[in-house]
């Protein structure tokens, strides 16, 4: 019951904060995109090869691109209030439909990568802390430093070279085997095998971040008085690390994990492009190249929703880990 109340408080606070944030993000994104040279009409006309002034004007008029910026913004917000993200001039379909097609892919990639990064980071960090200063710590420190300093796309490329090209264990392109009529277990296995490399490439940097953080905060916790209390009860050291130390050490780790979510989404653009993963990141890139602002705005908007949603999850996790959170007001 007490836990329920704390979680409710946390949720309420987050929602109050999230509303103005989202509005701010929309307006800022919109204005920033206006600063970009060129618009969809330019690109469409270029591709069609008929760039007469009349056709350009017609395209602009049709999609409202000829109106003043403020009017465009108001129109956009007005539509948004009705959950209408607009229409893509380039793909000739509603933006929402396009995004919804790509959203599950990105979600799957992000959730997998973040869970992988957290799990591996926490395990590696705990092992490093337990053997601090001895050889397992030293070896892992070097590995972590490498992961920390190598860009995700490079890790991804090397993984493709090793596991796809040389060993042929894992596929390196797309999110499923095209044309294969798979069902049940085979289908899941196929999807998973496509997921492994991009998720690892995306997670690698964050594994390093969380491992270093976990190591530091686990070592910090060991010095606390309550650890001596726990040992003084005659509990097994492994149990003490798990129940008393890790739970306290995870509080700063989850805080940082929350702050990195935006970076993770940014990294998804690169990784999705590299692995031909049909997600929002690649959609965003395509939209930029096509100056398809309505799609780009939609992607940005949904991304900010994703980040907020993930932050809520982290906040809840936090409230669960730390009873001092969410008690007052």
């Amino acid at each position: 019951m007490r836990m329920g109340r704390r979680i409710a408080t946390t949720l309420r606070r987050t929602v109050i904060h999230a509303g103005p944030t989202v509005l701010g993000i929309i307006v800022l994104d919109f204005l920033l995109l206006q600063l970009m040279p060129g618009d969809a009409a330019d690109v469409i006309a270029t591709e069609a090869g008929v760039a007469t002034a009349e056709t350009m004007a017609a395209i602009r008029e049709r999609f409202g691109l000829d109106q003043p910026v403020l009017t465009q913004l108001m129109n956009f917000l007005g539509h948004l209030a009705q959950f209408d993200l607009g229409y893509s001039p380039r793909y000739n379909m509603p933006v929402l439909d396009m995004i919804m097609m790509r959203l599950p892919g990105t979600l799957l990639l992000m959730v997998t990568a973040l869970s992988l990064a957290l799990a591996m980071g926490v395990i590696v960090g705990s092992v490093m802390a337990a053997w601090a200063g001895r050889w397992p710590d030293r070896v892992l420190s070097v590995v972590v430093l490498l992961l920390y300093s190598m860009p995700g796309f490079w890790v991804g490329l090397m993984a493709v070279v090793l596991f796809s090209v040389k060993l042929g264990w894992l596929p390196s392109d797309g999110n499923m085997t095209i044309g294969a009529e798979l069902t049940g277990f085979g289908l899941v296995a196929d999807r998973l095998s496509h997921l492994v490399l991009p998720a690892l490439a995306l997670a690698s940097f964050f594994v390093a971040v969380y491992a270093r953080l976990t190591r530091a905060s686990m070592l910090e916790v060991q010095r606390q008085d309550f650890m001596r209390t726990a040992h003084g009860k005659g509990l097994h050291p492994f149990f003490i690390q798990l129940r008393h130390a890790l739970r306290n050490a995870l509080i700063p780790v989850t805080t940082v994990a929350g702050m990195h979510l935006g970076n993770l989404l940014g990294g998804a653009v690169v990784v999705e492009t590299l692995f031909g993963w049909p997600g929002m990141g690649r959609l965003a890139l395509e939209a930029v190249l096509a100056r398809d602002f309505s799609v780009l705005l939609g992607v940005l908007l949904l991304s900010s929703f994703l980040v907020i949603l993930a932050n809520v999850t982290i906040d809840l996790l936090h409230a669960w880990l730390d009873p001092r959170i969410g008690e007052a007001g």
Binding site: Q224, D225, F226, R228, T229, A230, H231, G232, K233, G234, L235, H236, R243, H244, R247, N248, I251, L321, D322, P323, R324
Partner: peptide
């Protein structure tokens, strides 16, 4: 030693603010 600690010999520390685990 673990069978003795907490069962035959117990310890109370100086700082009550920090000697209990804050998350349990």
């Amino acid at each position: 030693m673990r069978r003795i600690r907490g069962k035959r010999i117990s310890l109370i520390q100086q700082e009550p603010m920090t000697s209990l685990n804050p998350v349990l």
